[in-house]
Design a protein around this nucleic acid. Structure first.
Length: 661
RNA sequence: GCCCGAGUAGCUCAGUUGGCCAGAGCAGCUGUCUUGUAAACAGCAGGCCGUCGGUUCGAAUCCGACCUCGGGCUCCA
């Protein structure tokens, strides 16, 4: 029998009979490997274990232990999900079902426009486990386009994918544009169109959980019908699934919406309106400290502070272009002196709530002639803006309709731009670190393919300046090709929090458009007028959002410098109250935020309350302390210490605050 | 904006197929207790059952609209 030669990743060669598959290869190496093999990667291309190998190919066997394997498991899990739904809902049809981070989803259309319920997920889960227990094989086959369309006669969305691919357009990875269409068959009844590869059989899939269901537009467009999507998470091992679910629980316990209520930080009164927050006194302390520190650092970094009103006449946003491009995201206008109240003479004036601060800062710039000697000119404002976010997107403090941006606009010459971008980025990252975030990556968004203002040279110059600044930070840089706004490229800073979630924080955006629209200029050393370049820069993004991120990052346990109440002094009995008040006064004299909880309740209960409120320090004072001038220190997350002199505790607290711990 | 779900006391939740006075725990208040490190005891008070309309002899419960919240899609200048 003729043999083929296969190269393995370690460079060694193996001979196998012609027609051997990846599975045969694994079996020829070892029984254990054959059992653990999931797919093979042939000359860089993933394939099914059952696909025949050819002479001279390089093959890597992907096993259950391989980090790449999750993607295949997830994709195969999606097929099982689809089969389960089609089994349970005769007449249902299905659209796309890709693997995604941590799992997969599948989109369906149920007969009669039905939707899924939570109970349905349980039924589907049970059916999926039945399919997995049956250990159905994934069998690949290919058909020419016309036969493929025939096979999917009952599934119009699948045929849309085929047509898209045939027309050379993106089919969302569901099908490629070749001569034939590939399918996978699990049972005589269930076939799904798919590029593959898949695990050899459904028995390999066990560690999944259905998580959510909801509506989703076909191919993500509001123009298309809404399908019903089911999400699953899936992992190679039960341990990974458990770990993931545990992490989800941990994240839920940190949810700033929940902690905001529990810790009495902020609320969203229904009477005020959706997406409009009020900050309670404890949240107010944190917010003020955040803002104060930011102001101090901005002042040191050469920013000048400006202020602007919350509303303005429509003209300003006509000039800026906001009404042309973003009117949908703005609150509707207030009509002042409308025609009916002005005896029909003349049009009324429209005032808008501002969605951005930049036009105001531009007017300040333009209020007089500017010299190159003034540049870079850095204007900073905690500017409150209002955006009419769509009703379905408002979410806690992270997506609101009224927010305060820590907004700065920097006007520079073209020559200064690169240096300025570098120092802004350094400034931003340093400041974020002071707030306790220290794990970042950067994203560079470049010119969008279609609409864009500014010349190619300008884009190139600004983009490379941004890239240079980003690279000099020594951080991971992700390219977001074509993801920039039409008016200029940008860098966004993504921060990973204490449990590894990423949040988009600061953005640094170059703007070619507004200096033009407002005809900004400065007089250069040559006596000629030149156009400045404008950089938009927000560090927190919005104070509200950053507040929410910090709540989640710290799980509500704010470091001493931000904690609303840093210390609570608990007298053991009434007899020790005077001493407790004295200790509190002494600490307060050093600038600490201290309260005393009198002995109306048991000590244990007062400790419990203070712990629930996540105070950095609880001090207990009794007879011994009164006698010796000491305190008992019960630090958050630490061991109780007795007989600590008040002065040394005060020093410790001061050190915490100074070190932002 | 679209699809699904939910709104009962400050918070977390019970409230059977529509049937008198709507319940609990925690929090709050008042007493008693005076305590050395995560829940002392007793009592009191607290709700137009999200809002408006409808069905009904009768609505927290059924129907509709609206508001708000949660999940998903789209969006996030």
């Amino acid at each position: 029998m003729p043999e083929i030669a296969i190269t393995l990743p370690d460079g060694s060669e193996r001979s196998l009979p012609e027609g051997s598959t990846g599975g045969d290869l694994a079996a020829s190496i070892g029984r254990r490997l054959a059992k653990d093999a999931v797919v093979v990667v042939v000359d860089g291309e993933p394939r099914d274990l059952a696909a025949p190998l050819a002479d001279g190919e390089s093959v890597r066997i992907v096993t259950i232990k391989d980090p790449d394997v999750a993607e295949y498991l997830r994709h195969s899990t999606a097929h099982v999900l689809a089969q389960a739904v089609l089994n349970l809902w005769p007449g249902a049809t299905f659209a796309g079902g890709p693997a995604i981070e941590n799992g997969c989803y599948y989109d369906f259309e149920l007969p009669g426009g039905a939707t899924f319920t939570d109970e349905d997920l349980e039924r589907i889960d049970a059916e999926m486990r039945r399919i997995i227990a049956a250990d159905q094989p994934f069998e690949r086959f290919e058909l020419p386009l016309d036969e493929a369309r025939e096979l999917m006669a009952d599934h119009p969305y699948k045929r849309v994918f085929m047509d898209l691919a045939a027309a050379g357009e993106s089919a969302d990875g569901e099908v490629s544009g070749g001569e034939t269409i590939s399918f996978y068959r699990n049972t005589p009844e269930f076939v799904d169109m798919c590029l593959g590869p898949h695990v050899p059989s459904t028995g390999r899939l066990a560690n999944f959980r259905l998580t959510r269901h909801g509506g989703a537009y076909f191919r993500g467009s509001e123009q298309n019908p809404m399908l019903q999507r089911i999400y699953a998470v899936a992992f190679p091992t039960a341990g990974e699934l458990e770990a993931f679910l545990h992490q989800q629980e941990e994240a839920a316990a940190r949810d700033h919406r929940r902690l905001g209520v529990e810790l009495d930080l902020f609320s969203f009164p229904e009477e005020v309106g959706s997406g409009l927050a009020v900050f309670h006194p404890k949240g107010g302390i944190i917010r003020r400290l955040m803002e104060d520190y930011s102001r101090k650092r901005h002042e040191e970094a050469g920013y000048e502070f400006v202020y602007s009103p919350h509303i303005t006449k429509a003209d300003l946003f006509e000039t800026s272009g906001h009404l042309q491009w973003f009117a949908e995201g703005m609150f509707p206008p207030m009509e002042i002196d409308a025609p009916e109240s002005a005896d029909g003479e003349g049009a009324g004036t429209s005032y808008y709530l501002k969605p951005m601060n930049c036009p105001f800062h531009i007017l300040i710039y333009r209020s007089r002639m500017r010299s190159y000697r003034e540049l870079p000119l850095r204007m900073f404002e905690f500017g409150t803006v209002y955006r009419y976010e769509k009703s379905g997107v408002v979410h806690g403090l992270t997506r609101v309709r009224g927010m305060t941006q820590d907004d700065a606009h920097i006007f520079t010459t073209k020559e200064q731009m690169a240096d300025e971008l570098g120092s802004i980025l350094t400034f931003v990252l340093d400041l974020l670190r002071d707030y306790g975030l220290d794990d970042f990556y950067l994203e560079l968004s470049t010119r969008p393919p279609e609409k864009a203002v500014g010349s190619d040279e300008e884009w190139e110059e600004a983009t490379s300046a941004l890239r240079g600044a980003a690279e000099s930070m020594g951080l991971e840089l992700v390219l977001d090709e074509g993801g920039g706004a039409f008016y200029g490229p940008k860098i966004s800073v993504q921060a990973r929090d204490a449990i590894g979630r990423t949040w988009q924080m600061s953005t640094i955006q170059v703007d070619f458009q507004l200096p033009q629209r407002f005809d900004l200029n400065y007089v250069g050393a040559d006596g000629e007028r030149h156009r400045p370049i404008m950089i938009h820069r927000a560090l927190f993004g919005s104070v509200e959002r950053f507040f929410g991120v910090l709540v989640e990052h710290y799980a509500g346990a704010f470091p001493a410098w931000l904690a609303p109440e840093q210390v609570r002094v608990l007298p053991v009995a009434d007899a020790h109250l005077d001493y407790a008040l004295q200790v509190a006064a002494q600490l307060r004299g050093g600038g600490a935020r201290v309260d005393v909880a009198p002995a109306d309740e048991t000590l244990g209960n007062r400790i419990r309350r203070a712990k629930g409120e996540k105070l950095p320090y609880v001090l207990v004072v009794g007879d011994d302390d009164v006698a010796r001038g000491t305190v008992g220190v019960n630090p958050r997350g630490g061991e109780v210490e007795r007989d600590v002199p008040v002065a040394s505790f005060a020093e410790r607290l001061a050190a915490d605050v100074a070190g932002r711990h």
